[in-house]
Design a protein around this nucleic acid. Structure first.
Lengths: 161, 161
DNA sequence: TATTGTTATACTCTATAACTATA
DNA sequence: TATAGTTATAGAGTATAACAATA
């Protein structure tokens, strides 16, 4: 929805090329997703496999915790981890504390791959703002951070403060 | 990639809660995508079906044109339109100008549904910025617009100017 | 009983390759 | 020959429901 360039709604201060906040955020989101898709595809991975790797960068979660982090059903998580395990970057190990539980961790190859992909995503996403001044890039970063923090609160996940 | 809250890289001006431009854009993008997913799911549609409807809001493209607009293979487009047609909101009609071509259009029900979804997306995406002042919301909109315009140029699709 | 995880099943979405029909 | 579109096939990703094993 809200994807096609369209005339701005009346009654707002809208300089010639302002898409408005709705189309602006939706289109910006699509551009960032396209970067994630392109970078992961370059490593012959899906976006979801990339998401999995990024989550495992600094965690060794159980399947149940992983399902929660990914916001997926536990059965979907089983499939995702199965495919990642077959491809190599991830492995399971039995949790010594709980006989029911398996935890998921990057393999050495997986860690190297995750670093490479993370660097590439960082470079390409940052490059999206190459046309902005340092000041405006920083403003954008701060405004995004505000929206993110508010959304976290709305989800009840709120941060410290 | 680049999804987990993490310490800011050194050597930059980073107030306490600034995620940095990379994580800021990636996380903001995820939040917007989650809205699209939630709204379309509320109408028992996939995100892709919602994308299809939004594209058809002001077009009656051929299958080939639609494939280009969606950036999908023509066979994927066939399936997407098949499923949408079975569900009701979309139909095909033979192009009177070209015997090989079929064009795709919203049905009356589909148009109503598209309006409802578009309004809901607009409301929920706009609500993401409820915590910003009008000035800051406008700044965010302008900055997003700049990034979007630059990305369009980078894709060679550049706008008028 | 509750929790952890997998399996079976069904559906959406996607691409590649091969095909038909029209231009 | 080139273009428009579909079909066949294969695979990823997802959820629901039913199941096994452990707590």
């Amino acid at each position: 929805m809200v994807e096609t360039p369209r005339a701005a709604p009346p009654g707002r201060a809208c300089p010639a090329h302002d898409l408005g906040i709705v189309d602006g955020l939706v289109q910006l989101s699509a551009i960032v997703q396209a970067v994630l898709s392109r970078v992961t595809a370059g490593a012959d991975l899906s976006v979801q496999q990339g998401r999995l790797l990024s989550i495992l960068r600094d965690r060794e979660p159980s399947m149940a915790q992983l399902a929660r982090l990914l916001d997926l059903d536990k059965s979907s998580t089983t499939g995702l981890v199965d495919r990642a395990t077959q491809r190599g970057p991830v492995r399971r190990f039995a949790d010594p504390e709980d006989g029911r539980s398996f935890r998921v961790v990057l393999t050495d190859d997986g860690r190297r791959l995750t670093e490479v992909l993370g660097n590439e995503v960082a470079r390409e996403v940052a490059a999206l703002t190459d046309g902005l001044s340092d000041t405006n890039r920083h403003r954008l970063s701060l405004l995004a951070g505000r929206v993110i923090a508010d959304a976290a609160v709305a989800r009840g996940i709120g941060l410290s403060a």
